[in-house]
Every structure is written in structure tokens, then in C-alpha cells.
Amino acid sequence: MQGLAFDIAHLLAGSLVLVSFLMIYQDRLPSLINVFALHAILLAASVAWQATIQNMPELYVTAMIALLFKAFVIPVSLRRMIVQLGIHREIDTVVGTGLTMLAGMALVALSMVVMLRITAMADPLAREDLAFALSVLLLGLLMMVTRRNAVGQVIGFMSLENGLILAAAGAKGMPLVVEISVAFSVLIAFIVIGIFLFRIRERFDSVDMQALDRFRGEQQP
């Protein structure tokens, strides 16, 4: 049974990395939001499975938060937002897809090499989980760098946080304080982001971050 439990955890965390890759090359916002919802569902499943095999019922709460909040509430409201802003048809990437995918692969390789080497002594389950979590984190970071649209950056940031929750769930017996705070911070972050998006809309009629770059404080008109 131990072998199967391990394999399932492995499968879920691995598919999370795969979906991160899917997100990287989505150049239209609605499909990006869909893929993000899938990412959140996989995260919830992964955390729930950790709750089962570690016998930590409080992790189910974390899984539920991920499922309700990240897989439903946020995607739905983001979708409404982009329709209201009229940017749901825009194409959005700065760097070419091929190049970004290559960079993504390099980052995953890097995190595998680093994590598997340093955690040789640790529990094998936590070990693999951590390597996947770091991959998801770095891929989220890559996505934030390659998007110029504010909504794309926000989704990149949230997928990065998914990687953090995966790591926290994989760490055996880590107190719940952290999970709740992570979920909570996502909530606040989203509110902040929401306010920002609407303020940006008010000011610029655009959420294109390159429009903001023109207003750098030290450029003379």
C-alpha cells in the first residue's frame, strides 16, 4: 500500500508541474484562466491526498480552500473582470513560446537537481514533493516575468503560491498556522489586486503594464 500511496502523490504533484507548463504557453486570457482552475483542482487533490496518507485532517481544510477559492471563486471573477475590461480577446506574451518552454525545462531540471541532492536524508515522500513544489514555484515566477498583462502576472503569482502550498503540505506535520495564512494572504492579495486592476482601469483604460512603464518617475516628457 505504501508504494501505491507514494505513486499517487507523485502522480498528482507531477501533473501539477505539467499543468504549469500548459499555463506558460496559453496566450489568450480565458484559456489561461481555465488552465489555472485545473491547476488549483490538482493542488486540492494533491493536498487532500497528503492529508490522507499523513493522517492530518487539518490539511483537508487547506485542500477545501484551494478548491473553492482558487478553482472556482477566483477564475469566475477574473473571467468577469476581463470581459468587463474588454481584454478577453487579446494575445499576451512578451517572449516567444519556444524560448519560454526551454527556460521552463531548464528551471525544472535545476530544481530536481538541487532538491533531490540536498534532501537525500529526508523522507522520500517529502523529498519528491519538494522538488515538484520548487518546479511549480519557479515556473510561476517564469510566467510572471514573461507576461506583460497584469491579469497574466496575477495568475503567475497565484500558481507560484500553489507551489508553496504543495511544499507546505508535503512537509510532515507542519502546523496549520502556515497553511491558513497562505490561504489568507492569497485572499488579501486578490483583493489588493482587484483594487489595483480597477484603479488601473480608471486611469489608463488598460491593464497593459507597458503603458505604465511610460510613466516612470524620472523620464522627462
Binding site: M144, Q153, F157, I193, I200, R203, L212, F215, R216
Partner: peptide, 17 residues
């Protein structure tokens, strides 16, 4: 203002990372 929103956004994104 344009500048303060850009500054806050940049701070938010970099700070969060």
C-alpha cells in the same frame, strides 16, 4: 497617480515574490 500606481504595483509584485 500614474506613478504611484506603478510604484505600488511593482512593489507588490516584487515584494510578493
Amino acid at each position: 497617480t500614474h506613478q504611484s500606481l506603478e510604484a505600488a504595483w511593482k512593489y507588490f509584485i516584487l515584494g510578493s515574490v
